[in-house]
């Protein structure tokens, strides 16, 4: 029942803005012309493809983000069980986090956390 509500609410959350945009589309005037619908780059003609190549840095940050995301997904069940854990179980998670913290410090020392 709860998941049914979540599903319905997600549909509602997507439907409402879509409906508003569609309704405004009927109300609004439509007078496109060549200059109006050209790409806005401060009045200068676009040079070449607009889907340009990006540098590797975005990918590196994306990868570090992914690694931490997976780590945190594993830590959430541990956090839920925290009140039932022995001290040993807690130290196991401490070790888990410290290994990844070492990875972060390694990335830091290697200079990959600098945004150039």
């Amino acid at each position: 029942m709860d998941w049914l509500y979540i599903g319905v609410f997600m549909l509602v959350a997507a439907f409402l803005p879509a409906a508003a945009i569609t309704a405004a589309g009927f109300l609004a005037p439509k007078k496109p012309n060549k200059v109006k619908s050209s790409t806005y780059e401060c009045g200068i003609e676009t040079v070449g493809e607009s889907w340009v190549q990006f540098k590797a840095q975005y990918y590196i940050f994306g990868l570090i983000f992914l690694i931490f995301d997976v780590e945190l997904v594993l830590l959430f069940p541990w956090a839920v069980a925290y009140n039932k854990l022995t001290l040993f179980g807690i130290f196991e998670a401490v070790l888990f986090v410290l290994i990844l913290l070492a990875g972060l410090i390694y990335a830091w020392r290697k200079g990959d956390l600098e945004w150039i």
Partner: peptide, 14 residues
């Protein structure tokens, strides 16, 4: 081991 694996992925990416 999962933690070590993730560490390996991080080092590899760098």
């Amino acid at each position: 081991v999962a933690s070590v694996l993730l560490l390996g992925a991080l080092v590899g990416a760098i």
